[in-house]
Design a binder for these strands. Sequence first.
RNA 1: GCGGAUAUGGUGAAGUGGUAUCAUAGGAGGUUUCCAACCUUUUGUCGUGGGUUCAACUCCCGCUAUCCGCACCA
Length: 558
Amino acid sequence: MTDEADGRLERLNEMLKRRGFLLPAFGIYGGAKGLYDFGPVGGRLRSRVNQAWLDHWLQLGNIVELSCPTVTPYEVLEASGHVGEFSDFMTTCKACGEASRADTLLEPHHPNPDALKRDELQTLLLSLNPECPACNASDWSDVVAQNLMFNTTIGSGSSGRAGFIRPETAQGMFTSFPSIYRHFRERLPFGAVQVGKGYRNEIAPRQGMIRLREFNMAELEYFIDPEAPVQVDLSPWQDQNITFISQDTPEFTSTIAKAHEDGIIHHPTVAQFLGMTYDFLANMGIMTSKIRFRQHEKDEMAHYAQDCWDIEILGSYGWIECVGVAHRGCYDLESHHKATGKSLHARREYAEPRMTTIDAWTINGATVGPTFKALAGAVKVAVEELPKDTEFPTQVTLSTGDVVTVEPQHVKPNQMVIKETGEWFIPHVIEPAFGIDRIIWHMIDHAYHESDKDGDVYTTMKLQQSVVPVDYAVFPLFEKDGMDELAMELHRSFCTTPGVVSMYDGSGSIGRRYARADEIGVPKCITIDHQSLEDRTVTVRNRDSGEQTRVSIDSLLQ
RNA sequence: GCGGAUAUGGUGAAGUGGUAUCAUAGGAGGUUUCCAACCUUUUGUCGUGGGUUCAACUCCCGCUAUCCGCACCA
């Protein structure tokens, strides 16, 4: 990689630490693997990206924002599949102490050990007793689940309840479905967004911000009726050429609208969300030529997904997955429904009520009950399946296997018309999930600009104006004669304007101050000089062009 | 997790069995200072725990962290 060859990545990382964008967390204790601080500059950048993300998706008009706990009961993540899917089953060689994955050890002896449960792995391990790859002994400890989620106990002592710190924000939104459904007056489609932290106890966090143990994520869960016709306007994305990698085709170029027409992107809403993701990334200053869409292979898909796309961004670490758009089907709501018995259904009204006419037999409870006792329920089911022309007495075989004789006094005609106006179903979910840290990394990576200045490297952070950590830097040319007071007055005025961040800097030569401001991407530097004291005009210097214009202070504050 | 390398002011580096040097950055002051100028002055460092030693930043071991491969993971 050329980045590494010329040291750009190294210089970038140094600058991020020095200027307070990103730094290893708890540094005075030696740091902690996979944990990062957004520093004095990065903190503001992060919150602006989060806000921009929320604003972007709230535009859909049928989205609510949620904030769910990070501490999550065990059962929730068991139902979601995370307890099973996020675990590796480990066993230790009693001879040499080497830990191995049980499924890996059994691979030569079983077609698909990855799919086995813990008990099955344990049994197989005992019976097959494979050799330790390290020392060739065959003496294994019990199989234990090593989970990628952080364990915790909710409550203390014996009354404590097992839990995890969430590995994603999604589950809280699924378990909140009834409340969201009510909020939207029971009309699909609608969605919930959440920006928050997720936690995964990664075995080997690497590559700076790319794989973290605590990370910022932003997810939208969009609930749809799988049978309702979808009207999506993909025309905004009919011109941008994008690189695709799909299941069957190697890399090719197309547009989102075309890829949907061609059946590569299956669901129109998935296509729409891919388009909106593309727009968001572009708004954040990600170079669109460094974005590509990759469809998951079928065997690569996570346990919940039906169709899944990665949006990858090219940066100093190569192509990195930064966003996933997954069609999760009904997997999540159905899992939680099964685990709790609570209704997570939505109702679909028929265009016309459906009438079902029943003209057959049913039981006479007053006689069937005393006669058949415990079998009465099964008798009812059997009798109602009999054709209308059945003559009694007759013999029927029950679902229990018993054969009973049904007498005329046990039955009566059953004639009724059932009117159904609609049906209940489990909504499907389409989920765009954003790794905010990875996106911020690439925003920084793409914005980081080096130029040559008298043989030295000059750094400019060309971040998008909408997300810059500092909007204005205010410099008095000299900190005397009242220039410092006027500068401070302007700085304070900026700071009292909602949403505006200003930085006062009176230290060092003016050129040095410009350089410091450029390095953290301040778009406008304002200098107060002698003339400012006369006529309240100041110099505004543009970050990217270096151009200076003279304007009045009052026009800046409007 | 395995293998290899590394850990010295905020940042980047040099160096030694007798408590350390340089650049840069930061603070104060000066300079009519508009693109990292200059002058004076000042602040601040041997990741962590243990061992060997009269003495350890230096040698040895553990831990933690970082980087590079592999593995894992999305």
